[in-house]
Design a protein around this nucleic acid. Structure first.
Lengths: 178, 178
DNA sequence: AGCCTCATGTAACGTGTTACATGATTGT
DNA sequence: ACAATCATGTAACACGTTACATGAGGCT
């Protein structure tokens, strides 16, 4: 619900530019957070104006300047306050399920194709997550300890994708024996 | 991503008022779609103006008038066109995971309490879904056939909640043996 | 007396998407 | 030649949330 705070969590660990954040979201949080670059720049601008972030411009050769942001004490406080809040469960709005709910209005082949397409994406996703997990499990104990919280979120990604694929098997079985 | 089309799916089966739709979302689609009454009224207004819906006012005694909507041929067409579109996987933005990712900035007790709170909600949810499933499985074959697509979405809800609870067990084990 | 359900809506704000805009460097 | 990556942003629009507003009837 709050991209602002997701950005704060990332910047707390290490300062970075909008572009850096985009990559960090994709690399480390892809299975539970998604944001476009436009939105990241908008939120950075807002937080900068609100005094949560400090910006410094790093000139580069042959590339546009990098605008590196880091937390101010106010930004740190805003993050801690948010982390202490009581959270609500996520709102789920899954259009694939709406589309399936209305399956009687569709051609079965169309549904099968849609499921197959999504399955491919989920399978690729699962492979990527499992390989990240192998990488984590190969780390020495001390390193594992450092990344224990991100690892828990990775496990969520894995269990989540596997549950989707199990469900997809059920759907396929259903479509094939109506 | 499209409340408009979720509403169209519901109204295609049976005409209804904004208030009816709110209840239908809660009763039949709660595990994959959520909308507030304000938003439903806004979208109904938009779709009425766009010619997707026709409205008729039913006066009632001692209660405000009901404004019942049903699909126009254009609305039907819009729905079929949407169902035929290629869909993208849902965007996931799960703030609980952002909060856990930043767990090193938090008190462990605080995390445990948050997890326990969410667990209670998910367990209640699971119980509700399993009871709906029992009800479905007790129906005669012909009725089961009629509700086969909604049943598939129900299965998604069940597998999804169970996967969350499995993950919560892992998190608890982790927090207790750090 | 106070809360829940029925039943509708507006206004302001916050969040997210799509399209547009620029421009150098590196790889195929 | 063409696409990708690096790096930044604005503008318009779509979608969603919170707060406000009204008013009857039933339950505890």
């Amino acid at each position: 619900m709050s991209l602002k705070h997701a950005i704060l969590v990332l910047l707390e660990t290490e300062p970075g530019s909008g572009y850096d954040l985009l990559k960090r979201f994709r690399e480390h949080m892809g299975y539970f957070w998604n944001a476009s670059h436009q939105q990241i720049y908008q939120q950075l601008k807002w937080m900068h104006e609100a005094g949560w972030l400090e910006a410094s411009t790093e000139p580069q050769q042959g590339k546009p300047d990098r605008k590196v942001y880091e937390l101010t004490p106010q930004g740190h406080e805003a993050l801690l306050a948010w982390l202490a809040e009581t959270s609500k469960p996520e709102k789920i709005n899954d259009s694939l399920l709406v589309r399936l709910y209305g399956g009687h209005l569709r051609d079965t082949e169309n549904i099968r194709a849609e499921m197959a397409h999504h399955r491919t994406l989920y399978e690729q996703n699962r492979a990527a997550l499992l390989s990240i997990e192998q990488h984590y499990l190969a780390l020495p104990k001390a390193e594992q300890q450092r990344y224990r919280f991100p690892y828990l979120t990775l496990r969520r990604g894995i269990l989540s994708v596997e549950a989707w694929l199990d469900w997809a098997d059920e759907v396929d079985a259903f479509l094939n024996h109506p």
